[in-house]
Each structure stands twice: as structure tokens, then as C-alpha cells.
Amino acid sequence: MSAGTLPYKVEPHPVTGVYSGKLGTWLFLASEVMLFGGLLSAYVFLRVGAPEAGPAAWPTHEQTELSWKIGGINTLVLILSSVTMVMAWVALKMNDVAKGKMYLAVTAALAMTFIVVKLALEYHPKFKHHHVPSTNNFFALYFTLTGLHALHVLGGVVVILYFLLPGAGLWKTNPTYYTNRIECTGLYWHFVDLVWIFLFPILYLMN
């Protein structure tokens, strides 16, 4: 054993039925749920306690100048990227690495589209109209939540690019392992998608 590799690194555990990486990813996501959960409860806490009038009052939907259209487009973009992510994994399962990588590339591209739309069509105009985090707690939460989410998206892009370029060699030495890692990336990716699906209505529609 001294020179062996770790058990259940690649093949699923007979009892738990998962390989370690997958379990680890699920646990990591559990902590992520607590992170965004904490922030969302802060949203509720602050919105309920917001003063009725004055500069600190909660803005109306008009005042927020958030376009549900742009938000909606981004929502579709992310959902689509989740689909392509699954396709990538399926392709790898079927040993079609070329197709798999193609879909990974598409996923990354869609993710970047999301980021660009966010920065160019949402953050930038907001700043132009002096809607900054310090304006009021709605914008404070808006920028904090979407900003944190955007960082998660970027993180996902970095991981995907890693598996497309430097990490791609793993496919040759151990295809199963490579596929597994894409599966875990996928799990993470769907979570990031899910977070947005919560944020969108809360920030764009519920005012």
C-alpha cells in the first residue's frame, strides 16, 4: 500500500456509491449554500427593517433601473451553458473527447457572455447614473450578491479552461478520472446557475 494510489479516487466506493471527488464536491456545495443562504437572510433582514422614508428607504422597481429583459437574457445564457456542460460530460462518457472539449469551450464562451453583459449592460450604466453600492442597501445587496456570483462564474471559467488546456493531458493517462473531474465541474456549474435562478427574481422582479 505504501506506494499505492488512494482507493476510490476514481472508481466509486462500493457502499457510498460515489468516488471521493464527487462527495467532496457535494460537501463543498453544501457550504456554498450556507454562504449564499447567509447573504439572502441578510437581504430579508435588511429589507424588512428598511425605513419607510428617507434616503435609506427601499427603492421601487423603477428607481432600481434594473431591466428584467437584460437579466432574463443572462438567465437564458446561463441555463444554456448548463446544458452544454452536461453535453460535454455525456460526450466524454462516450469517449468522444473532441466533442467533449468543444462543448466545454462553448460553456466557457457562454459564461463569458454572461460576464460581459453584466459588466457592459448592467454595472456600467448603473455607475454612470451614480447607482453605486453606497447608494442604498438595495444596491449594496445587488452589487454584493451579483458580484459574488460573477466571481463564482469566473472561477468556473478558469476551471474549464484548465481542463481544456494544461489539464487535458489527464484524458490520455486516465480518461475515467478526467471525465469524473468534468462531472464535478458540472455539479459546481449547475450550482452557480441555480444561485442565479434565485437571484434573478429576488433582485429583478420582486421590487
Binding site: A42, F45, L46, G49, A50, P51, P55, A57, N137
Partner: peptide, 8 residues
Amino acid sequence: TGGGNPLL
């Protein structure tokens, strides 16, 4: 601007 809560 205010509107926050120290107890949060």
C-alpha cells in the same frame, strides 16, 4: 446612507 442594522 443608513438603513442597516448592527444586530445583523
